[in-house]
């Protein structure tokens, strides 16, 4: 009997230490292929549903176009001439201004009255230059911050393939501080980060799971600011969560950026009086 048990233990030991017969690479390859197939089916379903929608939209569009054409031809509405326009090759860009904005792939069309003309130069490094204005660049974690006249700071994220612009209305964003929360941080470290963020006017509530003093996992974040910001993030499953605070010259928080793991930064403009309230999940 004892010998049997010993033999079983040995066999289990061998089974525990045996190398997998299906490697992680093969399993992920199979998973990707199947996920693609499942995704394809779902996409087909969506396509069929959207086709029905397109037919309805097309009929509406035909009626609207007819109405517009008849209005213009009757002389009630004159198209406004563009004060600035530029072609950008191989770039997808969008710029938010106080004025009307038209965005298209490989083409940027700005219609502005009060903002100075833009000179766009994408041949070397990305630059957006307001004429007769000093350009200020700041490198923050490979993220060039390019300042444009007040209320028109444009933050550009640049990766290897293309340049994407995220609209912003920041002012003099020249001071920033990053906080990085990892999923193995201790309570004391998290409290310290919370305290530091409070200095920027950010109240951060964290819902965590602990095993005694050891931080097991972060479940939810809630970030609030006096401007009405109420950002709720479901972060279960993350490994790092970074918060970047950007202040103006007077030390006032003008923007907050955050990112979960290797995602791109999402940005919240704090100068806006609009109140935010939205929930984001890790996916």
């Amino acid at each position: 009997m004892m010998e049997d048990m010993k033999m079983i233990d040995e066999l289990f030991d061998k089974a525990r230490n045996e190398k997998p017969r299906l490697s992680f690479e093969d399993a992920s390859k199979a998973f990707f292929t199947s996920a693609l197939a499942v995704g394809g089916l779902l996409a087909l379903k969506k396509l069929i549903i959207s086709k029905i929608g397109i037919v309805m939209i097309s009929s509406t569009a035909i009626i609207s176009t007819a109405l517009i054409v008849s209005t213009i031809s009757s002389g009630n509405l004159q198209p406004t001439p563009l004060s600035s326009s530029a072609f950008i090759k191989d770039t997808l860009i969008s710029v938010e201004t106080n004025e009307e904005l038209i965005v298209a792939e490989n083409f940027l069309d700005l219609k502005q009255k009060e903002i100075p003309l833009l000179e766009l130069d994408f041949r070397s490094e990305l630059q957006i230059k307001p004429l007769n204005e000093k350009i200020i660049e700041k490198e923050t974690e490979k993220l060039p911050l390019i300042q444009y006249p007040k209320s028109n700071l444009i933050i550009i994220k640049q990766d290897n393939t293309h340049i994407v612009n995220s609209p912003a209305t920041l002012v003099n964003g020249n001071c920033s501080k990053s906080f990085c929360i990892k999923n193995d941080d201790k309570i004391a470290e998290l409290e310290c980060i919370q305290k530091s963020l409070r200095k920027y006017g950010l109240e951060v509530e964290m819902e965590q799971e602990y095993n005694r003093d050891d931080f097991l996992e972060m479940l939810n974040f809630r970030i609030q600011h006096k401007n009405g910001l109420d950002l709720k993030l479901k972060v279960a499953g993350f490994t790092t969560f970074a918060i970047m605070c950007i202040q103006d010259e007077d030390g006032e928080l003008i923007a907050m950026k955050y990112k979960i793991d290797e995602e791109d930064y999402s940005e919240v403009n704090m100068t806006s009086k609009t109140s935010y309230s939205y929930t984001k999940s890790v996916d």
Binding site: A27, A30, S34, A35, V38, L216, A236, G237, S281, D283
Partner: peptide, 18 residues
């Protein structure tokens, strides 16, 4: 393995702790 992964992937929102 593959079928479990596919189901798990579609039900990821039900996973409370990594």
């Amino acid at each position: 393995i593959n079928e479990s992964l596919l189901v798990a992937y579609s039900k990821m929102d039900q996973l409370k702790k990594s």
